[in-house]
């Protein structure tokens, strides 16, 4: 049973997470990018993210990524407490280097996709998704 006090405490906890200093988050995002690319340059063409401009419910935001010729795609939610969303590796049986799923977004933020191409180079793109109700629980 959730009392009024509990609800308040939970709300406070959630806003504490939301107020994480931007610098800490930026580091986490940089780390997530570096973990995937090893610090390599990223081209800014060849990756397409399809996501709603405004997501009313951050708990389930439909998103799809398409990167022709990619062997791997990683998705990063730059404003989430943990930026990594998922890494998708395409095998020889894949019909296209695309994947669609539903993700959680804690607040309005940029969602980033990085593709590793068959020649070992990287490409990325990012789109902003406005979130009305955050999806990181609380």
């Amino acid at each position: 049973m959730l009392t009024r006090r509990d609800t308040l405490a939970i709300g406070l906890g959630a806003s504490a997470v939301a107020m994480l200093p931007a610098a800490v988050l930026a580091d986490a995002v940089d780390d997530a990018i570096a973990a995937f690319t090893g610090g390599a340059e990223m081209a800014d063409a060849g990756v397409t993210i399809t996501a709603p401009e405004i997501a009313e419910n951050g708990n389930t935001v439909p998103i799809s990524v398409d990167a022709p010729g990619a062997t791997e795609i990683t998705l990063i939610a730059t404003g989430n407490p943990t930026p990594n969303v998922g890494k998708f590796t395409f095998g020889p049986g894949a019909g296209a280097s695309m994947v669609a799923t539903r993700i959680r977004l804690g607040r309005t933020q940029d969602v980033m996709a990085i593709a590793k191409l068959a020649d070992g180079s990287y490409a990325s793109t990012r789109v902003e998704v406005k979130v009305t109700i955050g999806g990181c629980g609380g």
Binding site: N84, G86, K87, G93, T101, R102
Partner: peptide
């Protein structure tokens, strides 16, 4: 033959849905 291998994080929504293409 492997089609897709996905490493998922907590940011994937409940009842994980995945759509992709296979030959």
């Amino acid at each position: 033959v492997m089609v897709i291998d996905a490493a998922l994080e907590p940011a994937i929504s409940a009842n994980p849905y995945l759509e992709f293409e296979a030959v």
